[in-house]
């Protein structure tokens, strides 16, 4: 890979920003990169970042698929809440909360409910033709209500060690939540890039009319991506709720849809649909999670954290903007040849 190719890559700026952030952390925060093994588990700030980012990575993966078809899913946070509530409701009613079978039933039920919610979104968008932002806004609002109904407006606390494993457990020294996110990412990459799914999704996002005339079942794919998005959100909801051993209908996944959309956009997928990059999305999600953690560890006061985050995001977006770069470079060098577009 030549230097020029790297510079042109869509992933160049998010990677650069991540490196800069980590460098800052290295300089300003002692022991940031200290990773130690304790009781056979990995511990340290980088591991915490990965753990903290797992739900966001999951939600952003689903969001990427939805956005690639030209849609958007605002309901992911609510689906997280519903999923966690459902699982905790079932576990709370178990005679033995530590029964592995009982927890498995709870997990399957929670994910199944998420799939139904995704199907609902897909139905509204693909069959009834409601604009995605409106269609998913319905569930974004209604889903919180549903979650509160499930928990009867209370926070349900559970004491279940098998359930705790999902969000806070370790396997082979690695956090289970990170492994789950990695597995879902791997499966999604395989499904989209090793089959023709990715191409067909990009085609639907590029032009639904032309895709239909080329024999692509645009409607079916649209329903599929909303189901996939809800499934990802459902899993993320389980991780979140397992980590705190409770179901909180109000705060679980609150505003995560915005972080997820941001992650997708940072990763180089356009909101208008078409080409998508799962690697980019993952980077974007990691970047956002790193921002939160680094802000604390380099000593930025909590009240300024959001401002810090905003500044980084603005700088990143400017760096990614072809127009802005052209403005910067035009001043210094009147270029003989246009090299604005990147052949894919």
């Amino acid at each position: 890979m030549t230097l020029q190719k790297i510079l042109k890559s869509r992933l160049m700026w998010p990677v650069a920003m991540l490196v800069v952030l980590l460098l800052c952390a290295l300089i300003f925060s002692d022991g940031f990169f200290d990773i130690r093994i304790q009781d056979g588990h990995l511990f340290g700030t980088p591991v915490n970042i990965l753990r903290a980012s797992a739900p966001l990575v999951l939600v952003a993966i689903g969001m990427t698929l939805v956005i690639s078809t030209g849609g958007i899913d605002l309901s992911v946070g609510s689906v997280m809440a519903v999923s966690g509530a459902m699982a905790c409701l079932i576990i709370g009613d178990l005679s033995n909360q530590n029964s592995v079978g009982g927890v498995a039933v709870a997990v399957v039920a929670a994910i199944a409910l998420s799939l139904v919610l995704g199907l609902w979104n897909g139905f509204l968008v693909a069959v009834l033709g409601i604009q995605p932002i409106i269609a998913t806004l319905i569930l974004m609002v209604a889903g919180r209500g549903l979650a509160q109904l499930i928990t009867s407006g209370q926070i349900i606390n559970v004491q279940s060690s098998p359930y705790k494993v999902i969000g806070a457990g370790y396997v082979l020294g690695l956090p289970v939540s990170v492994l789950i996110a990695a597995v879902v990412l791997a499966i999604t990459v395989l499904l989209t890039r090793r089959t023709a799914l990715g191409l067909l999704l990009e085609s639907v996002g590029g032009s639904p009319v032309a895709s239909r005339l080329a024999g692509i079942q645009a409607r079916r794919f649209t329903v599929m991506v909303y189901i996939a998005s809800a499934a990802c959100a459902g899993i993320a909801g389980l991780i979140y709720s397992s980590n705190v051993s409770s179901a909180d209908g109000n705060n679980a996944g609150n505003l995560i849809e915005l972080d997820a959309i941001l992650a997708v956009v940072i990763g180089g997928t356009a909101l208008t649909g078409g080409r998508f990059s799962l690697a980019g999305t993952t980077l974007g999600a990691l970047l956002i999670a790193t921002l939160d953690t680094t802000a604390q560890s380099v000593g930025i006061p909590p009240e300024a954290t959001l401002v810090f985050k905003a500044v980084v995001v603005v700088v990143l977006c400017l760096a990614q903007s072809a127009t802005f770069r052209a403005m910067l470079f035009r001043r210094s060098t009147p270029r003989p040849a246009a090299r604005a577009e990147v052949p894919a």
């Binding site: 080329a214 692509i216 078409g274």
Partner: peptide
Amino acid sequence: TEGVIGELTVRENIILALQAARGW
């Protein structure tokens, strides 16, 4: 508007219908 899909490559545009017929 109803034919080629602009941002996809020539290759992808050419195989699109055949691929759609075969299923994803």
